[in-house]
Amino acid sequence: MKMDLGNWQAAGNAPDSHGAAPASGPAPGRALAIEARGLVKRFDGFTAVDGVDLSVPEGAIYGVLGPNGAGKTTTLRMLLGIIDPDAGVRRILGAERPHDVAHAIGYLPEERGLYPAMKAHEAIAFVGALRGLPRAEGQRRGRRLLEEHGLGYAADRQIRQMSKGMAQQVQILACLVHEPRLVIFDEPFSGLDALNQGKLEKMMRGLAERGTTVIFSTHVIAHAERLCDQIAIIAGGKVPFAGPVDLARDRIRPQVRLETRAAEGPWRTALPAAARHDRKLDGSSFFYFPLPDSGIEPLLRALIQGEAGILSLSIERAGLHDAFVAIAGEAAARALEANPQEEQGR
Rank of each mutant, 00 (worst) to 15 (best):
M3F: 14
G6S: 15
A11Q: 15
G12P: 14
P15E: 13
P15R: 14
D16A: 15
H18E: 08
A20I: 01
P22I: 04
P22Q: 03
G29A: 08
R30P: 09
R30Q: 15
E35Q: 13
A36Q: 09
G38T: 02
L39Y: 01
V40L: 13
D44F: 09
G45V: 12
F46Q: 12
D50M: 08
D50K: 00
D53R: 09
S55K: 09
E58R: 15
I61F: 03
G63D: 01
L65Q: 07
P67L: 06
G71L: 00
T73P: 04
L76I: 15
R77Q: 11
I82Y: 14
I82H: 14
P85I: 00
D86A: 10
D86G: 01
G88S: 09
R90Q: 11
E96P: 00
V101E: 00
A102E: 10
A104D: 14
I105Y: 12
E110I: 02
E111K: 15
G113Q: 14
L114S: 07
A120G: 10
H121M: 12
H121D: 10
I124T: 08
I124N: 03
F126N: 10
R135Q: 03
G138E: 04
R141G: 02
G142S: 00
L145W: 03
E148G: 05
L151D: 09
G152V: 02
Q168K: 04
L182I: 05
I184G: 09
D186I: 07
F189I: 13
S190G: 04
D193P: 05
L195Y: 05
Q197M: 10
L200T: 09
E201R: 15
K202D: 00
K202R: 08
M204L: 11
G206C: 05
E209L: 00
T218D: 04
A222V: 07
A224I: 03
G237H: 10
K238T: 06
V239G: 03
V239R: 06
F241I: 00
G243D: 00
G243R: 06
P244K: 02
L247S: 12
R249N: 11
D250Q: 15
R251F: 03
L258V: 04
L271V: 06
A273L: 13
A274S: 15
R279Q: 12
S285H: 01
S285R: 01
F286S: 12
Y288T: 11
Y288C: 12
Y288M: 11
L300Q: 15
A302L: 02
L311G: 10
S312K: 12
I315P: 08
G319Q: 13
G319D: 15
L320N: 05
H321Y: 14
A331I: 07
A335M: 11
E337C: 04
A338L: 03
P340I: 11
E343D: 15
Q344Y: 12
